[in-house]
Design a protein around this nucleic acid. Structure first.
Length: 258
DNA sequence: TTTGAGCGG
């Protein structure tokens, strides 16, 4: 006589967050407009973009999805990172479910432990759909978590490179408030420095919380240099930023860096 | 919390 219901594998136990799959409504995915962080001028462009995307609610068309052999050299998969251990395929699927454009989801797991490696792949029905979702969700908050989506083209797998734009110049940004996301950080700089290629707020893998610092990448070296002095002490969200130089984590052998 | 890390089958 063994109580059968006592067998709940710890590693697969329910997330600490609640049962995301039982959410009655699907629009908890509605994108969160960034809070009151300061984006000087280009705010309107950004909001315009967001609204455009909200208006054209894509509809899933199964016929179109399968009937289009298309130029199959197009990437339809996105890489998704910063996943917490409880973020499994159903969860991720749910994140994009209402778009009706997800073809498949895969979380990469450790062969031995079965634990998530913290990243995965989301395949969409088309390149356009993938791009749309990338634009829409990257940087917005993931449901039932305190961290934003981290999405990118799944470029390595297909051997295709996403636009490689040459060298990049990175700065370190510290003193970030807890609510600062990649996107906020990026836009804060991009408003003044158009060559900004991206920004990353470093988060704790376990808790998903920000560590209070991040990095901003520039394509233009002079903009990087200007930003380091001009943006130091400027506010992002509720706190002034502290800017420093970014220590290179990577060094390519045989390549000289200035 | 103050110098990350992110590509499978």
């Amino acid at each position: 006589m063994q109580p059968a219901n006592s067998m709940v594998p710890q590693s697969m136990a329910a997330p600490p967050q609640q049962q995301y799959q039982q959410q009655p409504q699907q629009h908890w995915m509605a994108q969160q407009q960034p809070a009151a962080y300061q984006v000087p001028q280009q705010q309107s462009a950004y909001y315009y973009q967001q609204q455009q995307q909200q208006q054209q609610q894509p509809q899933y068309n199964a016929a179109a999805a399968s009937a289009q052999p298309t130029s199959s050299d197009e990437i339809r998969s996105l890489w998704i990172g910063d996943l917490q251990f409880w973020m499994d395929e159903p969860y991720i699927q749910n994140c994009f479910a209402h778009t009706g454009e997800v073809a498949s989801v895969k979380v990469i797991r450790n062969k031995q432990s079965g634990q998530s490696e913290g990243y995965g792949f989301v395949e969409f029905i088309s390149h356009a759909a993938a791009e749309r979702n990338l634009q829409t969700y990257n940087g917005s908050m993931m449901p039932n978590s305190e961290q934003p989506f981290r999405l990118n083209w799944a470029s390595l797998g297909s051997g295709e490179k996403r636009s490689d734009n040459g060298p990049e110049y990175t700065i370190f940004v510290g003193d970030l408030a807890a609510d600062v996301t990649d996107y906020m950080l990026q836009e804060t700089f991009r408003a003044n420095y158009p060559s900004v290629k991206g920004a990353k707020v470093v988060t704790d893998r376990v808790t998903g919380r920000t560590k209070g610092y991040g990095f901003v990448k520039f394509a233009d070296e002079s903009e990087q240099l200007h930003a380091m002095t001009e943006m130091n002490g400027k506010f992002c969200s509720t706190r002034p930023m502290r800017i420093g130089h970014a220590a290179n984590k990577k060094s390519v052998p045989g390549q000289v860096q200035g």
